[in-house]
Amino acid sequence: MSTTSVLFDAPGPRSKRRVLIGSVIAGLLLLGVLVLVGLRLDAQHQFDVEKWAPLFDPSDEQFPLVWQRIGEALGNTLVAAALAMVFSLVIGTLLAVTRVTAARWYRWAVVGLVELLRGVPVVIAIFFASRVLPQFGLDLEPLWFLVIGLTAYNSVIIAEIVRAGIDSLPKGQREAAESLGLRRGQVLSLVLLPQAFRVMLPAVISQLVVVLKDTSLGFVISYEELVRVAGQIVQVLSNPIQVYLLIAVIFTLINYTLSRFAIWVERRLSQGKKSATATLSATDPAGAGTGGG
């Protein structure tokens, strides 16, 4: 671990002993908290079999039904996230490209739109998409309102990622392409964008984590994704802690895998070639990764 070497040397016998004592104390404290919480939960009968069996015991009669619902909900979540991501990539790239190439007044319009959409909470974008669009005759399924709301926010983030990707390329790339006589559009589509996408890939995968989490905001418009279905299951089985624990585990597993994948891709890309991924780090907690809920 790199942090270890920054903050402390390899421990000698005395600090080894101190670390050991600290570990024991911290471990005991941790155990104490866990036991306390466990006892409290037990006192509230949270460990009773009937609260857990429908979720984890295949012989329980409700087990197949519950998992069928969760499976459908997971499917809905993934579909919404995938659609939102595809649309965001397309629109975001268009925004970024026009921002790079277009006339000044138009560029200002794009900057304005980007700043506006960046400042609006995703949940409000989704909520109002479902309220405003029907007034203009667009009566769609909740899925599409969710996708539109997510796309409105994420396309702007993707646009910023693409722009940073293009900016991170060496100047010589553009100059060489221009000196070959390529037109602006050709410079972008043949030379800059293909390289920018490569650099962007980790950041895009990280953004997918944000989109996946934000699909849970579909609950405000009754889209049947994981969190909403969890709520429905809770109403029948009345075991909120157990059900939401399961949902939390599902989300953590998927998103943790995705973020590890992003880091792996980043490492691979930076191998051999000194790429500019540092500016677009997938692990950067400040970047796009904090966007949503």
Partner: peptide, 12 residues
């Protein structure tokens, strides 16, 4: 907490 949606945390 980084990988769970805020909604799930709130329900918890």
């Amino acid at each position: 907490f980084r990988n769970c949606p805020l909604t799930v945390v709130l329900f918890f």
